[in-house]
Design a protein around this nucleic acid. Sequence first.
DNA 1: ACAAAAACCTTTAGTCCACAAAAATTTTTA
DNA 2: TAAAAATTTTTGTGGACTAAAGGTTTTTGT
Lengths: 227, 227
Amino acid sequence: MTDKPRTGLRERQKEDRRARIIAAARQLFLKAGPENITIEAIAEIAGVSSVTVHNYYGTKSGVLLALVAESDRELLYTMRHDLLGKSRDPGDLLMHFLSIVCTHALKHLDKVIWRQVIAASVNGQDPRFGKLYHDLDRRLVGVLVEEIRRLQASGLWPAESDATQLGWALFNIQNARFIEFISSDHIDQATALRHLRNDIRALMLEKPPLPTGDVPTGGVLPDRCHP
Amino acid sequence: MTDKPRTGLRERQKEDRRARIIAAARQLFLKAGPENITIEAIAEIAGVSSVTVHNYYGTKSGVLLALVAESDRELLYTMRHDLLGKSRDPGDLLMHFLSIVCTHALKHLDKVIWRQVIAASVNGQDPRFGKLYHDLDRRLVGVLVEEIRRLQASGLWPAESDATQLGWALFNIQNARFIEFISSDHIDQATALRHLRNDIRALMLEKPPLPTGDVPTGGVLPDRCHP
DNA sequence: ACAAAAACCTTTAGTCCACAAAAATTTTTA
DNA sequence: TAAAAATTTTTGTGGACTAAAGGTTTTTGT
């Protein structure tokens, strides 16, 4: 009894089908209107049966998630590249972060589709979804944390803060505004960023609270703007 | 031609059906397992056709949303009552807030159902959902803002902060942890609260930064705990 | 190399949600 | 009380999803 062949014909066929299904899905989700986006249509283009699509990806949202997962690499690369050392404080950092996320999101899919993605990520019928999404979150937070550490190393932010904790907190704040951005057709990127800036000002994340012996200048007046 | 009767037989019948549908839905969502929860089943108990359920509430999630909306009053009442003047700072306030929200949520529906609710609120096939949910949010934030003003009036928090902005920012931070709580079966209320406390510490919302002439004591060490 | 075994895709059939249009019923109105 | 209006039910269609049966191809053991 030999080992299971990791690269047998069967494995390659599966990988092929996976790829074909994703390619077909991308073609439909991007080009075609929402009318033609049926499991059936995807299956036909991919040259498999609709049941196979289900077996591979669970649900229609599952196919979508896989599509999103593919663009993760790109987002992560962009994030690492564009976020590097450009910020003076966590507030600044977060503004850049949200800006990149929004731009990236709309570059690949439109809001209507993103709503389904987010809904699927919380609804989690298939546990794979939640996990996939959470993994991306973790890596994104990792980038934030690195930058926070950089700020701390430069003396721009108090070293007592736990960078990891702050990274998650900041990420959540930003994510709330991203979801708001996605949830409504009326909210454009500039508005989302304005809302985030208000959050930052209200939480006093803009001017670094100096580690000791000094007092942050109060009275940063937030814009009059909120839902 | 007389005025449209605001209380004609027709109106009363509609109200009756609405009530019967909601009652039937509650019965099924609470008692029965998820298997029996079909539009058909709800319609049968309510004594109407399944199409009527659709006409009244749009989708299955719509019925669910209506159910949630009903418990809003209670949550708001509890919130106003239990939050009143018990907090020493915004961090404290937010911990109480999340605690009340989590308790209230599980008292009425289980996590699986809540996931659908949240998914529907962002997915927004029916625009009513988003609006309903957002209205509740606004009123909840209102409660937060009142309490923040109270803190400011008592000199426990700098008066320069814009209470409304801070209210929304705090609400979003808390909401992220609530969604985390709902999204996973493994996270209990205590864990969610612990995560929120870490957020609060990282953001330095615990000790009020004194308005002027004093320095916040640094070095509040956050727990070692995060996803 | 070959036959048995295992893997796995497709077909088939069925449930349910969602939606639309026609048909039937009941309240309103004149 | 009969016509008109409103609203429900009936009927029918499409698509997501699931389960089971059937068939084909790769693997495996000799």
